[in-house]
Write a protein that binds this DNA or RNA. Structure first.
Lengths: 214, 214, 214, 214
DNA sequence: AATGAATGAGGTTTCATTCAT
DNA sequence: AATGAATGAAACCTCATTCAT
């Protein structure tokens, strides 16, 4: 980012029309993911990505008009994966089940590529987001808002703020777990659920029987 | 950092022993804080800090052997401020009161200089931490662990993990509130408490009367 | 110019305070002149200039915030030389003598470093001029306007336009002479004078006697 | 040009023999003209031209072996238009009328596409000219030489140099007028004539009655 | 003939850091 | 102790040109 001069051009420079192009774009994005995972934000340079992708730096810039656009594309790719699972979570009947499924989806998503997910959360907060990147962010937000409207969620005020908070809690805890090399999905899910359900005022059903244990 | 070549030197090159030196160090650290607040991570350069501090770049390097060391010192300074308030929080009699006081302290701390606190949380996660920086991090962690041992906190397993999670939840929510330019301490405190107390299994006393009395 | 991104920063980045700095600045500007003369506009790169100056590229950018600023400084340096001689020309009593002296000064100036003068005229027209560069341009213009107000210049309309035209004629003819490797000052001066005096309606005194030779 | 590697190939790689090819060549040249007008020298890239022409970059290089060849073709096209009008000017009986008509033709030509004409004058001076481009330049020169041989032009020495000077004066003044967004042909013509006729020693007939009748 | 994906040298510029003064 | 001029690796990015399809 140090020498970033183009601040506005974030949309793909050229819509790839041939099969070869599409393949190249995919390869570049995956290379970007790998470089970010392996070398972190500071080691992430467009030259490194091009090298790793096995394409020339010129090819990279044929499809991504700037470094930020490339990171944006990566964010979009990763978030899209999560969005699919999140939509599935929204199918659940009760709010509790839906939120639980959403948390599980986030954990699965994060544990797939822990470093990557964590660093992209950073980038997302740091970047001047382009239209596409904003769109997927909003989509996650929208899904979460819907989730929280389901029956069984006591907390029904400030849907926007609540959704933002819930996403923040989940991302924070899950990223942190990744940072500490945790691997136990179920255990992590229980912790995240305690925080999120607590925030939402949900008394989890499985603990309902022992509610008066104090 | 991009041009970071010295990877290991993070300790102050020279312990400032004279009053003037100590003063200079303080000035530099405060200048660093200002630059970070005003220009963000990308605009944060050692030359800019030296300029702002009114000292030469050579002097800056006399006290801080590297850019990371300077950031580390800033992290230490800011965290130390929080630590003091956190200690006070630990004086509270019950766990619930102590955690509530801790959350309040975090919010006060963050709202004092929102951009700075948020960006330093980034840096802390990004940096190869030096001894001093690790120390203050551990201290916050230790205080939190103690907090959670107090009577009235149902969740008594995995003290380390719980403390980590609690700090993560608080930082996440508070940083995010700062990012969205929130200003209402009390309202934010309520949201953070819902998440943290939920995580810890605390049924907040003020709500106990209206829900569990039956 | 191709990758020029900073369009506004043309003022010197740092006022050199030490003797060494002043020397370095001079060396860089002279190197720029040489490179422009030897390789032309397309071969003029900041790296080439730094190399030729025997300084690092970083030093160049310490004093000139952009390539254009460097060219601007070169324009200022060269034009300033001309301005001095032009002021002397303005001392002449009659308009004819003054304009003649001005033309002679332009020719001397141009013949000193023909390629350089010609290429800088190009650059001046091409560049988004900064304050300093505009200033020297205006100064030449102002001197010319004064010249044309002297007694003996029949043409007294549109002083601004006339000055612009006169400067254009002189520069055009003199640059072109340089391009064709002419070396005879006096002969060139006569041709330029014919055009300029013709434009101004001056019937040159030396030809006055033979005016009716047609 | 920066990445110009082929320095010698300026002639069309392939003589377009079919109607479609000829059409394509025309389209490309016109696209080049537009790009140069709209984006200036720095924004003039072969890819931009191909885009604007609606042909692939590969096709462009099928007709023009290099960027300079393309610019050369544009120079030839524009100069040819002027040559036609200049030939008509040469039909005039007297030297004064002929030169006046030539000046008028130059002004009309320049005012048709002011930016383009001005920038091409730059390019012409900058380019390592190829055979075709040199040819049209010589042709303008030759026409001018003929013009100056007509009766009524006192100055009959150094025909080559005089022609060169006259063309230089005209181009200089007219380009500069274009740069300052002048639109009054007649007024500009009068100024150019004063300079050119002065250079040539012509006492303009229309002013003769009011000044030399004594 | 035409396409357009790919190339890569080379451009401008930044900034952490050193060291002579 | 302090200064600040100097360094230079390395970052981002462009664009003339080639060549497989």
């Amino acid at each position: 980012m140090t020498q970033q001069t183009s601040e506005t051009r974030r949309a793909p420079r050229k819509a790839p029309k041939q099969a070869r192009s599409l393949e190249t774009v995919k390869i570049i994005v995956e290379a970007a993911a790998r470089i970010l995972e392996e070398r972190g934000h500071d080691g992430f340079s467009t030259n490194a990505v091009a090298d790793r992708a096995g394409v020339s730096i010129g090819s990279l810039y044929q499809y991504f008009p700037s470094k930020d656009a490339l990171i944006g594309a990566l964010v979009v790719r990763e978030t899209s994966l999560l969005i699919e699972d999140a939509h599935a979570a929204a199918e659940e009947a009760t709010g509790e089940a839906a939120v639980g499924a959403f948390i599980a989806a986030c954990i699965v998503h994060q544990f797939r590529r822990p470093q990557l997910a964590r660093l992209l959360d950073f980038e997302e907060a740091r970047l001047p987001l382009d239209a596409d990147t904003r769109r997927v962010g909003k989509e996650i937000q929208a899904i979460t808002i819907e989730l929280l409207k389901r029956p069984g969620i006591p907390w029904q005020q400030d849907g926007d703020v609540a959704a933002r908070d819930v996403v923040t809690i989940i991302k924070g805890l899950v990223d942190n777990a990744g940072l500490h090399h945790e691997t136990d999905h179920a255990e992590l899910a229980r912790r995240v659920e305690r925080a999120v359900f607590g925030y939402l005022g949900v008394v989890p059903s499985r603990r309902r029987g022992s509610r008066n244990d104090g």
